[in-house]
Amino acid sequence: MLSAQAPVVQSPLGSAEVARRLVSLLLQGGYKPGDRLPAERQLGHDLGVGRSVVREALRSLSLLGIVDMRQGAGTYLTQVADEPVAKASELGRLLSARRVADLSTVSVHLEAVMAGFAAERRSEAAIADLDRLHADVASDRRPLSAIQIEHRFHTTVWSAATNHVLAEILASIRALLDAPLGRSMSATIDRRWIVDDHLQITEAIRYRDADMARAAMSSHMGRIGVGLRAFLEPLGDPRVEGSERGEHAVDDLQSPVDVLARDRT
């Protein structure tokens, strides 16, 4: 019923397209958080739309926390500290099972890549960070949930890997998957083996063994995927079926099982 194919009408501004072009423009222009954007007239010219459309688009972006319109002082790309809606974890709760599968495929692969980079490039300071994290977790002074431990560990590995772009991509994906992961973890995943996985990956990074780091990260992500699948499956999410690429959604979440099976035999 809901998928009735009524045509998608332009939003009042004709704006989704304007926003997309604006992202491209800002990406190509190399703007950074805190930078001042060109004047509205200039943006309108570059995007091939009227100034009022640009103004509407900027206004909407400011409501999303992406730009900051300062009265009489121009428009600025927001500082990350403002937590724009585009990065909000609330977004993740709206994801279909198919989309969760797609995001998790990309993140499983990139997490393994980053673990390999971390092993090749880690500084002594990065190792100290990882050790400190493990000490915090072990001390239990401030009990952390499984998902908090996960976040802190992966963020630390990304810093050790020193690729900001991949870290940014993974952070966005993780924010989106936060809700489904959080629910699946509390339901099905034992915190202790997560910590064991983390320790194993840390050792591989410490000894600069990139192959081992990648392999350990892959099986770790595989185990997380099993939990995610176990969580999504009983929901019988109908959105997986009937979609042209629905079969991949299932495949993607099954492959970690193979990893797990291999590990145990």
């Binding site: 958080p33 690729n163 772009v165």
Partner: peptide, 24 residues
């Protein structure tokens, strides 16, 4: 495309340099 758009905005608002981009 909204998921990709959200990730793209993350890239716009994040730190980036050519070396990391080429590697990514």
């Amino acid at each position: 495309e909204w998921v990709s758009t959200a990730i793209e905005w993350g890239l716009v608002l994040g730190v980036r340099n050519t070396v990391d981009l080429v590697e990514a």
